[in-house]
Write a protein that binds this DNA or RNA. Structure first.
Lengths: 334, 334
DNA sequence: TTGAAAGCGATACCAC
DNA sequence: GTGGTATCGCTTTCAA
């Protein structure tokens, strides 16, 4: 079932059929009607592969994320997809599970697909792949890595500032023994997050004790890390978690050990995912506007092509602390 | 940058170049090496659109779901994608947000893509679209709708039996005032779910009071529905929620009203999503093996082509009740 | 307003 | 082993 069938069925040339389908060029109304009728009766759906091959342009955007199960990434995807649909694009998403190898293969897949633009929202980016991507001369938007360049845009969140806000807030509430729960510290961007915590802590040098623990990016990981943390003998009055998703597990482990949040231990997350408002107690966190990030990504890839092509652009996002009920004064102050 | 460039760069014909890339047909080792070197140095990535157009086969599977933000659907997607990747396929996912119009456009998109197979995991299926799909003569797997046919497979979960188990369990625990929280009752399959509840309830006719409330498929929806439920004056000792995702909100609303779970109200969910183990208290629920569903979908679409083509197949899944801490004896029995 | 024909970038069959 | 070429389904000049 192809355009040729439709054309024949409508007694027109394939060229004319194409014209009415794409609304390009003039077509007499009566013939247009005949073609449309043929399309309907044959249940014809244009072959999009062929279309983009012939037309030389794709209506597909690509998006690569580290962990689609973490609502942080999922929310960005949904926002991007929503904008994309509104403008007649679709989004092909790939999940790397934080594995550099899968990132490489995903990137190559997207190249093979000749996507119209690619959003790379991952933590496992490495320089050589970065270089390869930049040489592709294709619209790309990175999250939290790289620098703007022709066709390359960047969305950056000042992660450090968010952590600082959390650390300062907890300090002001009297907390002097704080732990950091993170994941995948071997990946540079995530190592940076841990480092942000350490930096912020250094500020209170000598006045604050701290430790860190890491596990997989999941509630289970958060729970496990917390278990290790507490079994090490360290008795934090506050735990800063690298993201809300893991914080779900942190809360659970504390609950199971009979530690009350926030009376015994304060907990803060990061991202402000929708679920963070449904935990028990609701989670103090740092807001990252994921919907906005999705929108910006779309904008960077599709809308401002001309400006992008020449220089790229950088979007900066400042995270805000959101205090809910999982945090409060340190126990000693009660 | 195309195969022609590579061929020229390696001083071979485009045909030979194609052979080494696809490992099809014999090629002298030295020439193969030259081609491979050309590919590397030119950073060539085959155009997948062209490939599948010429080859007449796609390596892409399609998947349409009602609500990707609900972990139930996301988990199925992840399982399917994982299997797909292992076998060299990719998965294009579309999210309908329960809107029949978006379902239609997603289906047409998938047809246009000429996907190798399509998994339709939605609640808003309607007969005419169903018919259109079946006429496509393309591997399809439906979830909980339709019947097996050539090229059409079905995965069905005996939803009713799961609800029955929950209802019976709660009855046995002494609950006599039970509410059902659902969503989108205008969609037939979901209406069926509510009906399952009513049927199960009818069994205890006269001995049990019940009511229902519906809202969006999200924690917020669950919270809202619960609020309406309680403000109507009905005082349930147990709430059966259509799925775990909404149950998150149900638990929150109860908490905020000072109702203790399970002392004052028992709550059961459905699906056994990962999060259901991290709620407070952990959620009693009905297990639906999402990973298995994803696997079955892949199997139905790709693996057993011959068998499928002739008759399709039906997979049945029996849900199991999982009792956790969100449910217990009715208050009057304490 | 319409049709013929040249690509788009691959695959695959058929010669040599 | 290797090269030529028809073909996939569509878009897009260019003429008519």
């Amino acid at each position: 079932m192809n355009l040729d069938d439709v054309a024949r069925h409508a007694h027109v040339s394939i060229a004319t059929a194409s014209r009415v389908l794409n609304d390009t060029g003039p077509v007499k109304n009566s013939t247009r009607l005949r073609v449309l009728r043929a399309v309907k009766s044959l249940r014809y759906h244009p072959n999009l592969q062929a279309r983009s091959l012939a037309g030389g342009k794709s209506q597909t955007l690509g998006m690569i994320v580290s962990n689609l199960e973490n609502p942080f990434f999922l929310d960005i995807f949904c926002a991007l997809e929503s904008d994309a649909h509104r403008h007649g694009y679709e989004v092909l998403v790939a999940n790397t599970d934080y594995q550099p190898r899968r990132l490489v293969s995903s990137v190559h897949l997207m190249m093979g697909r000749r996507v119209a633009g690619l959003a790379v929202i991952v933590s496992e980016m490495d320089p050589s792949l970065m270089k390869e991507l930049m040489e592709q001369n294709q619209p790309i938007v990175f999250y939290d890595v790289g620098a703007p360049a022709p066709n390359i845009s960047n969305i950056r969140v000042n992660y450090e500032k968010g952590i600082q806000k959390a650390v300062e807030y907890l300090y002001s509430m009297g907390h002097r023994r704080t732990a950091f729960v993170g994941h995948h510290t071997r990946l540079t961007p995530l190592l940076d997050r841990k480092r942000s915590f350490l930096e912020a802590m250094k500020h209170y040098n000598g006045k604050v004790e701290w430790t860190t623990a890491t596990e997989r990016d999941s509630p289970e990981g958060g729970q496990l890390a917390t278990r290790q943390l507490l079994e090490s003998g360290f008795k934090p009055t506050a735990i800063i978690v690298v993201n809300d998703f893991m914080a779900l597990g942190v809360l659970k482990e504390l609950r199971e050990r009979g530690l009350h949040v926030p009376k015994d231990v304060s907990v803060t997350g990061y991202d402000n995912i929708g679920l963070s408002n449904f935990t028990c107690p609701p989670l103090t966190t740092v807001n990252i506007p994921r919907a906005e990030i999705g929108r910006l990504a779309f904008e960077a890839l599709v809308l401002q092509k001309d400006e992008m092509r020449t220089q790229g652009r950088e979007f900066r996002i400042n995270p805000e602390l959101i205090v809910r009920e999982s945090s409060g004064p340190a126990p000693s102050l009660l």
